[in-house]
C-alpha cells in the first residue's frame, strides 16, 4: 500500500491539497492506488496500483478474470471500488464523478464488444461523438457547421470509412465497427484513451493499420490498450503491465515481461 493512502483527503474535493505523493508529480495522467473491489466474495481487483504517464502507450495483458475490464469499469465510473483512489490528470478525483463527467473530463473508452449506434449513419455516429456541448437544450437547437463537417470527413478518412459515410453503422463489418468506435473516441478529443481489445475479429491487414493508428496517437494522447493478441501487443508496446488476480504481477518492456518467471507460470503453468 502506498504511504499517502491515508494522508489524501478521501472525502475531499476534486483538487488535491499541496502535499501529494511523489507519483502525482511525475506527470501521471492516470493514477490508481490500492483499488479493491469484490463481487460476492470474489476479489476482482485486489489493492491494484497503477500509474500511466502522459503521452504513454501502455498495454495491459493478463489471463481471463485478471481484472482488466473491471479496472476500466472503475476508471470510467461504471463501477465504484470498495476502497482505493483513482486520479486523472493529477487532480481530478474520478471516484467522485459519474460516467458522462469522466468522459467530458477527457477519458474515452472503447468497449470490448464494438459498440456503435447501429441505427444511425456512420457520419452521425461521429457527429454525436464530436466534442460539443452535451446539454439537452444545446442539442435540441444544435446546427452542424461546415468546419465541423470537414472535421468529421477528415476523421472518416483517418479511420478508412470515407466510402461508408452514409451507411447505417449496423451494416458495417466487425472490423469497421471497431474503427468507427475508435474514430468516435477521437472525435471526443480525449487526453486518455482506454481501448479494450481493439483488434478482436480483425483481419491481419486491419490489425496492422490499427497498430499504426494507435502508435500515431501516442505522444499527443495517452493510450491504454487491453489486448490478448500477443503479436499485436509486441508490435505496439513500449511498456507492458501484466495483471493477475486483480493486481499487478509484472511491469516493464515486452521482453522483460515475457522472461519474468512469474508471468510464465501464470500463462503456461497453472
Amino acid at each position: 500500500m502506498s504511504p499517502h493512502r491515508e494522508s489524501a483527503p478521501r472525502s475531499g474535493p476534486v483538487v488535491l491539497p499541496g502535499a501529494p505523493g511523489p507519483d502525482l508529480l511525475h506527470g501521471a495522467i492516470l493514477y490508481l492506488d490500492g483499488v479493491t473491489l469484490s463481487f460476492d466474495g470474489f476479489r476482482a481487483l485486489d489493492r491494484l496500483s497503477l500509474s500511466i504517464e502522459r503521452g504513454e502507450l501502455r498495454c495491459i495483458i493478463g489471463p481471463n478474470g485478471a481484472g482488466k475490464t473491471t479496472m476500466m469499469d472503475v476508471v470510467t465510473g461504471r463501477t465504484r471500488p470498495d476502497e482505493g483512489q483513482v486520479y486523472f490528470d493529477r487532480n481530478v478525483d474520478l471516484l467522485a464523478l459519474r460516467e458522462p463527467d469522466i468522459a467530458m473530463a477527457g477519458i474515452g473508452r472503447k468497449f470490448q464488444k464494438p459498440t456503435v449506434f447501429e441505427n444511425l449513419p456512420v457520419f452521425e455516429n461521429l457527429e454525436l461523438a464530436m466534442k460539443k456541448r452535451r446539454g439537452v437544450f444545446a442539442s435540441l437547437f444544435a446546427r452542424l457547421g461546415s468546419e465541423e463537417r470537414d472535421r468529421i470527413d477528415a476523421m472518416l478518412g483517418t479511420i478508412g470509412l470515407a466510402g461508408e459515410r452514409g451507411a447505417r453503422a449496423g451494416a458495417l463489418s466487425h472490423g469497421q465497427k471497431q474503427w468507427l468506435e475508435i474514430g468516435m473516441l477521437l472525435m471526443q478529443e480525449p487526453q486518455l484513451l482506454l481501448v479494450d481489445e481493439p483488434v478482436a475479429g480483425m483481419t491481419h491487414q486491419e490489425t496492422e493499420r490499427t497498430a499504426e493508428l494507435l502508435v500515431s496517437l501516442a505522444g499527443t494522447h495517452s493510450v491504454v490498450v487491453v489486448e490478448h493478441d500477443m503479436a499485436f501487443v509486441r508490435s505496439i508496446a513500449r511498456r507492458v503491465t501484466v495483471l493477475h488476480e486483480g493486481r499487478v504481477l509484472a511491469e516493464g518492456s515486452m521482453d522483460d515481461v515475457q522472461n519474468d518467471p512469474r508471468v510464465i507460470e501464470v500463462y503456461l503453468g497453472a
Binding site: F39, D40, A44, T69, T70, D73, R78, T79, T115
Partner: peptide, 9 residues
C-alpha cells in the same frame, strides 16, 4: 445478482 456481467448492455 452481482457481478461484472450484470448491467452490461
Amino acid at each position: 445478482q452481482k457481478g461484472r456481467s450484470a448491467g452490461v448492455t
